[in-house]
Simulated assay, not measured.
Amino acid sequence: MNRRTRLLLAVVCGVAVASVYAGQPVLAPMGRDLGVPADSVGGFVATGQLGYLAGLVLLVPLGDVLDRRRLIAAHLALVAAGTAITAAAPVAWAAFSGLAAAGVFAVVVQTTVAYTASISPPAERGRNLGIVTSGVVIGILGARVIAGVLADLWGWRSIYLTLAILAAVLAVLTLTLLPADARPDRARYGQVLRSFGGLFTRPVFLRRGLIAFFLFASFGTLWSGMALPLAGAPWHLSEARIGLFGIAGLAGALGAARSGRWSDAGHARRVTGIALALLLASWAAIGQLPWSLPLLTLGVLLLDFAVQAVHVSNQHTLTAAYPDRTSTTIGAYMVFYSLGSALGAAATTALFDAAGWTGPTVLGAALALCALAAWAVPDRAGGLDQPGRVVGASPTTR
């Protein structure tokens, strides 16, 4: 697991997740070009996210059945096909089909994370996960900035054409540059699907999953609602200027890339608790949006630092607890991520209409407090806080 491998895997994550989120800044021109009414353009993003959720359940467990290196390459090729269809779409249904396909196979991100965990020495697992998952953050936040620039220069189709080319190139590179995925024992697909559901009864998994649910609901509350007050009085910021807040979020998230090393040292639980406390504190600064942009910037930086630190810590804990089912475990864990993100995105706009920015602020802080409460509740089955030591995992999940 050298520097070149980590960089390649991080880029794979960034490009794949960008295929789901890149359309957010250009929904209006996409709708006009394809004849979709303004009140329905959110369906472009929703289609990709629904496809992603389906892929988490049906495709990610394949990583415990098939060669993950080949699976990553195949899924990248299909992401390239989906984004190419979207770029060339003459009518709305073709664009929706392409976005759905790209969303389904964008779960290559989770296969990549599982692959990273499986080929990493135990003492370096957290460090490698921190670096590779930083690509996800770059893809989510950076895609919004880059998409806006490309759309201004060459139109919205150029975004998806660029993603198609990048995904196709990466599919070739993964086959030629990644280490072999050598595993003597591989499960059957039916077995891993059954174990997928069984994970939701495991105390270690369930607690980390609940933390992720509240964590990403809080994250979604900020990033789905922040543009609304910034575009209105008293700021009246343009879309380009609003997009610049993604740079603050990116800086915060990348600053947490080293959190994996703290987990390697046996401090996963402590890192999670401190980061969740920072998440709660960040909303005190974010709540000042109507009066202070510098405080908002500080809050965004803290929030994204906290989210990335907890996310890395969660994945480190779960891949160490269930080393023989890393793909299935990561896929099941990300279900909490998807549901939490959807909740935050759906609730924040309704609350903003009803109570102004106070509504999303209270919601975001309440969700952070729920995550902190889930972390604080003692786990009767124990947890994983020491490198290589699993407490409370049954022999069938080791």
Rank of each mutant, 00 (worst) to 15 (best):
V91Y: 12
G197Y: 03
R6L: 15
R186C: 02
F44V: 09
D185S: 10
V192Q: 08
L173V: 02
L193K: 03
R183Q: 14
A168C: 06
A10L: 10
A376I: 05
V79H: 11
L56M: 13
V204H: 05
L215I: 05
G392L: 10
N128M: 13
V377D: 02
L161T: 15
A182Y: 00
T361N: 08
W156S: 07
A95M: 12
L199C: 09
L369C: 07
A94R: 04
P184Y: 00
L71G: 07
A167R: 04
G249H: 06
L215M: 10
P61Y: 08
F219R: 03
R389S: 13
L237H: 07
T111N: 12
P184G: 03
C370E: 03
G255A: 04
V107Y: 04
L9S: 05
T176N: 00
G340N: 07
L295M: 14
S238F: 05
S40K: 15
L99G: 07
W375V: 03
L76A: 10
F213R: 08
C13L: 11
V41F: 12
M1C: 04
I72E: 01
Y160D: 09
S327T: 04
G287Q: 05
A374P: 03
D181Q: 01
A365T: 01
V362T: 07
P25Q: 06
F305A: 10
W93C: 08
L163P: 09
A268G: 10
E124I: 06
S394Q: 14
Y52I: 01
L372V: 02
A77T: 12
L276Y: 05
A123M: 10
A16F: 02
L78M: 15
H75C: 15
L178H: 05
A100Q: 04
A257Q: 10
V136E: 06
P360M: 10
R258A: 15
G23I: 05
V91Q: 14
V300D: 01
F336G: 07
L161F: 15
G48A: 15
A101T: 15
L250D: 01
I247T: 02
L170R: 02
L193Y: 07
D67R: 03
A374W: 04
G43T: 05
V192F: 06
L289S: 08
G383Y: 06
L289N: 08
F219P: 02
S238H: 05
I242C: 08
V41R: 13
F205R: 02
G232I: 04
A46G: 13
I85W: 11
A212I: 12
P61L: 09
W291E: 15
L303W: 00
A74M: 13
D67I: 06
L78R: 07
R183Y: 02
T221F: 05
T133F: 12
G148N: 09
T349C: 01
L193I: 13
A168T: 10
I247R: 04
A253G: 15
F214C: 11
A355F: 15
W375D: 06
